[in-house]
Simulated scan of single mutants.
Amino acid sequence: MARIHCAVALASDSSLSLPPGAARHVQVLRMQPGDALTLFDGTGGEYAATVERMGRSDVEVRVGERVAVEREAARAIHLAVGMPANERMDWLVEKATELGVAGIQPLMTAHAVLRLSGERAEKKRTHWEAIAIAACEQCGRNRVPEIHPVQTFANWLAAQSGDSPRFILSLAEGTRPARELAQNDFRHAWVLSGPEGGLSPIEEKDAISRGFVPLSLGPRVLRAETAALAALAFLS
């Protein structure tokens, strides 16, 4: 059955004209009146629904019972990533969403190739949000991970506070293995990962001084996007 994200508040036993994005999705699927679908608004739970009318530019549905089902990871892991270039960031957002990431913070770091600001940065964030929503539709999640606005590494790090564990992927000697840290008792955590060239020595030192614990994923050197996903899988 089709699962469609609906960017408006949903309520049981009501008729609804789908917002443009959801309506286009239904039209692309060539659904017809009477067809069943599942709607979710990203805040938890999902709703059974039935197509009532297919117009040229709008779609009306009947919203039925709310099902309080959640498919979230046991831990809320937030990724802060030095943005990899080209389509690799798209791939990271998609796969991290499937793996249950709670939020993604795109960062501009010293070695990052991708540089974004202003309108271009906001367009990219909107693009990544759409990828996350599509991944939720596919994998069954009813909560859409938050894609934070692009920030510089220094500005983001300066704002870090709180008691949640914070980890940084590192190749330095003496780092603790992710498998070991995953045994600790925590519900929320941040994981900081660098871009293709890794974090600079100064960035890594600054993060550790702010309480980030260095962790290792093993003896092999992974691509930037692979490393972030591997840490997410280990810890969540």
Rank of each mutant, 00 (worst) to 15 (best):
182 A>N: 09
201 P>L: 05
153 F>D: 10
149 P>F: 01
122 E>F: 01
156 W>A: 13
188 H>L: 11
149 P>Y: 01
138 Q>T: 03
177 P>E: 06
170 S>C: 08
132 A>H: 01
189 A>D: 01
203 E>F: 00
181 L>A: 08
119 E>V: 04
144 V>M: 02
121 A>M: 00
154 A>W: 06
225 E>G: 04
214 P>W: 00
181 L>Q: 13
180 E>H: 11
187 R>L: 14
220 R>V: 01
129 E>I: 14
138 Q>F: 03
196 E>Y: 10
127 H>C: 05
212 F>I: 04
226 T>K: 12
215 L>W: 12
172 A>F: 03
129 E>R: 15
211 G>L: 00
180 E>T: 14
187 R>F: 10
115 R>M: 11
220 R>E: 08
130 A>S: 14
165 P>C: 06
215 L>H: 11
211 G>F: 00
152 T>D: 09
223 R>G: 00
169 L>K: 03
131 I>R: 03
213 V>L: 14
168 I>L: 06
155 N>Y: 06
214 P>G: 09
165 P>H: 09
158 A>P: 08
153 F>G: 02
170 S>T: 07
118 G>S: 02
127 H>S: 05
155 N>H: 13
208 I>D: 07
184 N>T: 13
136 C>F: 05
178 A>M: 04
194 G>M: 12
138 Q>Y: 10
144 V>S: 06
131 I>C: 01
174 G>V: 00
202 I>K: 15
208 I>W: 10
186 F>P: 04
188 H>Q: 15
165 P>E: 03
141 R>L: 14
220 R>K: 07
144 V>W: 09
205 K>A: 15
222 L>A: 12
181 L>Y: 02
138 Q>C: 07
178 A>H: 03
123 K>T: 06
183 Q>K: 15
119 E>A: 10
176 R>C: 08
182 A>W: 03
215 L>V: 14
163 D>Q: 14
151 Q>H: 01
195 P>Y: 04
129 E>D: 11
207 A>D: 09
209 S>T: 14
135 A>N: 06
217 L>H: 05
119 E>Y: 02
211 G>T: 00
141 R>K: 14
115 R>Q: 14
123 K>V: 02
155 N>L: 13
123 K>S: 05
190 W>A: 13
